[in-house]
Design a protein around this nucleic acid. Structure first.
Length: 563
RNA sequence: UGGGGCGUAGCCAAGUGGUAAGGCAACGGGUUUUGAUCCCGUGAUUCGCAGGUUCGAUCCCUGCCGCCCCAACCA
C-alpha cells in the first residue's frame, strides 16, 4: 500500500458500521458492497435523512461498492409522485448519484406476493379475520403475553384461498390481513404474529389500481434488500426491534445473495438538532397548519429549506461528517451546523455592502454634483476573487446600529464628534445630529477627509471603527428576510405542544434595504456576504429578495449584553 | 412481571487493563480597512453510581440508578 492509499484509508471513518463493513469485506463474506437509501415518498427529506444519505452513499464510495436509491412505497394512502421527484432532487443536490440503481419496493410486489404464498404453504403465515381493535387486545401488552387468534390454525388450503381472494379484491379494506405465524408470547412485540399484508383499495402512484393488497414495511424491506443484493442494510435505532423479524423472514423465505450470505441490518442513532423539529410528522404538521411557507421555507430543516436558505451542500456534508455514527442518542447543537455553514460560506462568498436599517449621512464638504468610483476587494482573504468599483457621493446610508448618540465605552463606531472609516472610502467625522420632532435621529451631518481616500490616512492617524455604507443616489432597493431558529427551546416539547414553542420572531422582513448597485446582478440562489452583517442568498423565487442564511459571529453583541 | 438499546467535559465524541484524542461552544490574548476571518492559549485528578477482581479499571465482574425505543392493518 502506498502513501496515498494510506491517506485515503485514514479518511474513512472508524465508526462501528464501517468497522463491520471493513471486516466483512476482508473476510470475503460478500461479493461486493451494496447499501441503499430507502425513503418513503410521503414527505420531504430533512437534515436527519442527510445523515443516512451521507452514510449509505459515503460507505459505498469509500469501499468501492454501490448505493441504491429505493423508494419504500408500500403505503399508497400517504405517498405521492411529487415527493418522489423532490427526494430525487434533494439527493442529487447533496451530491450523490445512484446511477442505474433507482428502485421501488413496488417493483417487487409480484415477487413479494409469491413469497407470501410460499410462507402460507410452509404453514408460516395465515389469514386473520380479527378486526383491528380485537387484534390489538389479542396482542397483549408490554408486560403480558398475547393470545393466539382464533383464526391462527386455519388449514393451509383455506389460507391460500382467502389470500388469493384478498388479492382478487373480494373483501373490503380492513376485512382480513395476512399474518406471520411466530410467537404471541414473545417479549418482542414485533414477533407476536406481525401483519404482513393488508387490504387497501387505494390508487398507488406507480402501480395504479393493479393491487388492492399491499405488503407492509416488514414484509417489503428485507426482501427488497435481498432482491437488490444489499449487503448492509443501515437504519435508525427504532428499527432494532424489527431485526429479528427481518432475519426470520429472510430465513423463512430462503433468499440469499452472492456467496450465500443474507443482507444484514445494522442500526445507528438518528440525528436530533437543537431548536428544530426533525420528524416527518411534525414537519408535515408545520406545513399543513401554515406555520411556515411550505416544505422549502428557509426556516425548515428540510434539504430544500436549507437550499433555499442558501446553505451550501458542502456545508451539510461537512456537518454530517463531523457527526459520529453511534448508537447513543443525543441532541446536536445548532451551533455546530452554523459553524459548518459559516466555514464554507466564508471561503466562497464574495463580499458586498448593503445597509439593512438605513440612517442618512450627508458629507457636508463633499461637492453636491460629484460622485466617484472606489475600488473594493471582493474577498480580503482571497485576492484571486478580484476587485470591484462602488460609487461614492455626498449622501450615503449607514447602518443605524453604527451610530450612538451617547456611546458606551468600547463602542468604536460613529457618535457625535467621532471619526470612523467608511470601508474602502474615506474617514468621516460626525459634526451634527439631526432629529425629527419626536427626538428620533434621522440624519447625520459629517465631513470627510479627502486625504484618506481608500481608507488610509497619510499622517498615519488611526481610527478604531470601520463601517459599511452605500451611496444613496446609486443604491438599489431590495427586501431582506431575516431568519432565526424556528423553535425557542433546545428541545421542543413532544405531542402538539411543540407548536407553542414556535419562535414568533423566526422571520423578520425588512421591506426596504439598500444595496450597492452591483448586487442587482446577483443570480437566484447565489450567496454573498454583506460585510459586517452576514451571508445572504438571493431568493430562488421572488426577485430583489435576499434571504439571510446566517449572521456573522458577533462579539460586539456579547460585549454589549454584558455591559 | 416484558423485550431491545444507551450512559466519557455545556454539546457531538475517540479510546481501552497501564493511567482520558479531536471538533463545536465558552473564556483569555495576538493580527486585522468586516468588533468577521486567521493565529495562539485555557478545560475531565476523571469516564452514571456502589462494590468486587487486579500491582493497576473508564475499559473485566456484580448490583443499582438514569435516559431512549416497542403494544399502527405507518415507515
Amino acid at each position: 500500500m502506498n502513501d496515498a492509499d494510506q491517506d485515503s484509508e485514514s479518511e474513512i471513518g472508524t465508526d462501528f458500521i464501517r468497522e463491520i463493513v471493513r471486516e466483512d469485506l476482508a473476510a470475503g463474506r460478500y461479493d461486493g458492497l451494496v447499501t441503499r437509501f430507502p425513503p418513503e415518498p410521503n414527505g420531504y427529506l430533512h437534515i436527519g435523512h442527510a445523515k443516512s444519505i451521507c452514510l449509505n452513499f459515503g460507505i459505498a464510495e469509500e469501499f468501492g461498492g454501490r448505493c441504491n436509491l429505493r423508494f419504500d412505497d408500500t403505503n399508497p394512502a400517504r405517498e405521492e409522485q411529487a415527493f418522489i421527484e423532490a427526494i430525487k432532487e434533494d439527493v442529487t443536490w447533496l451530491g450523490f448519484d445512484w446511477g442505474e440503481h433507482l428502485h421501488f419496493a413496488s417493483d417487487y410486489f409480484e415477487q413479494l406476493y409469491l413469497w407470501a404464498e410460499g410462507l402460507i404453504e410452509a404453514g408460516k403465515a395465515y389469514v386473520d379475520d380479527l378486526p383491528v381493535d380485537e387484534m390489538r387486545a389479542y396482542r397483549g401488552s408490554l408486560t403480558e403475553a398475547g393470545r393466539n387468534s382464533p383464526y391462527r390454525d386455519r388449514e393451509i388450503g383455506e389460507n391460500l384461498d382467502l389470500f388469493r381472494r384478498m388479492r382478487a379484491g373480494e373483501f373490503p379494506d380492513g376485512a382480513r390481513v395476512l399474518r406471520a405465524k411466530i410467537d404471541m408470547a414473545s417479549g418482542n412485540m414485533n414477533l407476536r404474529d406481525p401483519v404482513l399484508y393488508r387490504i387497501l383499495h387505494a390508487e398507488h402512484p406507480r402501480t395504479g389500481t393493479e393491487w388492492c393488497i399491499y405488503p407492509n414495511y416488514d414484509f417489503a424491506h428485507g426482501q427488497s434488500d435481498a432482491i437488490e443484493e444489499v449487503t448492509h442494510s443501515l437504519c435508525t435505532l427504532e428499527f432494532a426491534d424489527h431485526r429479528p423479524l427481518y432475519e426470520w423472514l429472510l430465513e423463512s423465505i430462503g433468499t440469499a445473495i452472492g456467496t450465500g450470505a443474507r443482507p444484514k441490518q445494522y442500526e445507528f442513532s438518528r440525528l436530533n438538532l437543537s431548536h428544530a423539529a426533525l420528524s416527518k410528522r411534525r414537519l408535515t404538521q408545520l406545513v399543513a397548519e401554515g406555520c411556515v411557507d411550505g416544505w422549502d421555507d428557509p426556516r425548515m430543516p428540510t434539504i430544500s429549506g436549507l437550499r433555499r436558505r442558501g446553505v451550501p451542500a458542502a456545508a451539510v456534508r461537512d456537518f454530517i461528517s463531523r457527526l459520529a455514527i453511534t448508537r447513543s442518542d443525543g441532541v446536536v447543537e445548532m451551533a455546530m451546523l452554523e459553524h459548518c455553514i459559516r466555514e464554507q460560506l466564508n471561503q466562497v462568498a464574495p463580499r458586498r455592502m448593503a445597509v439593512l436599517r438605513p440612517l442618512k449621512v450627508v458629507i457636508e464638504n463633499y461637492p453636491d454634483d460629484k460622485s466617484e468610483l472606489l475600488v473594493a476587494q471582493n474577498h480580503p482573504g482571497n485576492p484571486d476573487m478580484g476587485t470591484r468599483e462602488v460609487p461614492f457621493s455626498r449622501e450615503l446610508y449607514v447602518e443605524r446600529d453604527d451610530f450612538m448618540e451617547d456611546p458606551p465605552r468600547k463602542f468604536f463606531r460613529l457618535g457625535p464628534g467621532r471619526e470612523v472609516r467608511l470601508r474602502y472610502a474615506y474617514f468621516i467625522t460626525c459634526k451634527e445630529v439631526i432629529k425629527d420632532a419626536g427626538g428620533e435621529v434621522v440624519e447625520l451631518r459629517c465631513t470627510y477627509d479627502p486625504e484618506t481616500k481608500g481608507g488610509n490616512a497619510p499622517d498615519g492617524r488611526k481610527v478604531k471603527g470601520t463601517i459599511h455604507w452605500v451611496s444613496a443616489a446609486h443604491a438599489v432597493a431590495a427586501e431582506v428576510r431575516l431568519y432565526e431558529n424556528l423553535f425557542n427551546s433546545e428541545e421542543p416539547p413532544g405531542g402538539d405542544e411543540f407548536l407553542a414553542d414556535l419562535n414568533p420572531g423566526s422571520l423578520e422582513i425588512l421591506p426596504r434595504v439598500w444595496l450597492e448597485p452591483g448586487l442587482a446582478e446577483v443570480t437566484p440562489g447565489q450567496t454573498v456576504q454583506f460585510e459586517r452583517l452576514g451571508y445572504f442568498c438571493r431568493d430562488l423565487g421572488a426577485s430583489a429578495v435576499f434571504n439571510r442564511t446566517l449572521g456573522l459571529r458577533d462579539s460586539w453583541a456579547k460585549i454589549k449584553s454584558k455591559a
